[in-house]
């Protein structure tokens, strides 16, 4: 093996070993070179030793970097945990990391915390190559990390313009399910509320799903989407909207609940939340822990297969949602 290592351009014997086992940790080019070198001098893996090692290493975690960094541009863990969505996703992420023998550390780059550039230096020093973007502010369009030597998976964060690997619940399916559920219960006037830009990307998909279902049985007269804004006079606008369009059911985000409740008051109206984090709320309860789990699984796969840098085009993975029984 040392001879092969020497012939293939002074690589380390462990590189040779990995390459001959076709490990994705070695780049295909280097693998081809080492295979050629081994063939040239007639080196073959000892199958007996191989089997013995495999048996021995079966239950031992693989070596290599086992550290993941979860990054948020919030200012602290307390702020992150204020949202039950983040808390659930964090729980799932930690669980998956533990199962895959990884350590997941949290870093914050929000107000009063180090800048992304500073964190870059920290990650470099610690050899952290795998990032999990977690809890990104609604108004952030980018996060200034150096992506070239890192792999990253984002949870939700559809507002970031950087092409990324993302994992998020399938909100388009969630609103479609709720619409159909309300329709089969005999409600004909179903409406959707747009929040004040708390989760722009996710809300877009939710609204798209709602509109698609509505297209099948368009209400007459049509109900426009009501946008919740923080401006004054919102309550009169909402009352007018209620009176003119007379919705029986409204769909909205969990974040909009507090703003909506005083507006609705005593009006007879059913509400469904399409991103409910708790089973006590009526609506769809996406499995946020599973979203966190998936994100960790993906970032670990990227890290183990040496796929560093941003993807050439954004890739989004949607986790399926179901209606509660």
């Amino acid at each position: 093996m040392r001879d092969v290592a020497h012939l293939a351009g002074n690589v380390s014997p462990s590189t040779v070993s990995l390459a001959l086992r076709n490990s994705p940790r070695i780049s295909p080019a280097a693998r081809a070179k080492i295979h050629a070198a081994a063939k040239k001098i007639g080196y073959r893996r000892d199958p007996l030793l191989d089997a013995f090692n495999q048996h021995r290493l079966k239950n031992i975690p693989q070596p290599g970097s086992r550290h993941l960094a979860a990054v948020s541009d919030f200012s602290s863990m307390a702020e992150l945990n204020e949202s039950p969505h983040h808390a659930a996703a964090r729980f799932g992420a930690l669980e998956a990391a533990a199962r895959l023998h990884c350590q997941l550390d949290f870093f914050f780059c929000g107000p009063g915390q180090p800048t992304p550039r500073r964190l870059d230096t920290v990650f470099k020093a610690r050899g952290l190559r795998a990032l999990l973007l977690f809890g990104v502010r609604a108004d952030s369009a980018t996060m200034n990390f150096t992506w070239t030597k890192k792999c990253a998976v984002a949870i939700d964060s559809l507002q970031l313009t950087t092409p990324l690997y993302r994992v998020t619940p399938d909100y388009r399916e969630a609103t479609r399910l709720l619409w159909r559920c309300a329709w089969t219960q005999g409600c004909q006037r179903i409406a959707i509320i747009r929040s004040d830009g708390t989760h722009p990307g996710s809300e877009d998909r939710a609204i798209a799903g709602f509109l698609l279902e509505q297209l099948r049985h368009p209400p007459a007269p049509p109900i426009p989407i009501f946008s919740l804004t923080s401006e004054r006079g919102i309550s009169t606008r909402f009352k007018q909207w209620l009176q003119t369009h007379r919705p029986q059911v409204i769909l909205h985000t969990y974040a909009a609940t507090n703003a909506l409740l005083p507006l609705i008051g005593a009006a007879h109206l059913r509400r469904y939340v399409y991103d409910a984090p708790l089973p006590t709320i009526a609506g769809v309860h996406p499995d946020y822990a599973d979203v966190g789990r998936r994100a960790v699984e993906q970032v670990v796969t990227l890290m183990q297969t040496n796929q560093l840098g941003l993807p050439p085009a954004a890739v989004c993975t949607y986790v399926a949602v179901n209606l509660p029984p």
């Binding site: 199962r99 092409p163 399938d170 699984e297 796929q307 085009a313 954004a314 890739v315 993975t317 399926a320």
Partner: peptide, 28 residues
């Protein structure tokens, strides 16, 4: 992407597979 997903599906031991089905979309 399909191969990469398949790779992680093969490598995951049965107990490591999460349950809910996934859909993955690549932007144009």
């Amino acid at each position: 992407r399909a191969v990469s997903l398949l790779g992680s599906l093969i490598n995951a031991r049965p107990e490591k597979i999460s349950v809910s089905p996934l859909t993955s979309y690549v932007e144009g």
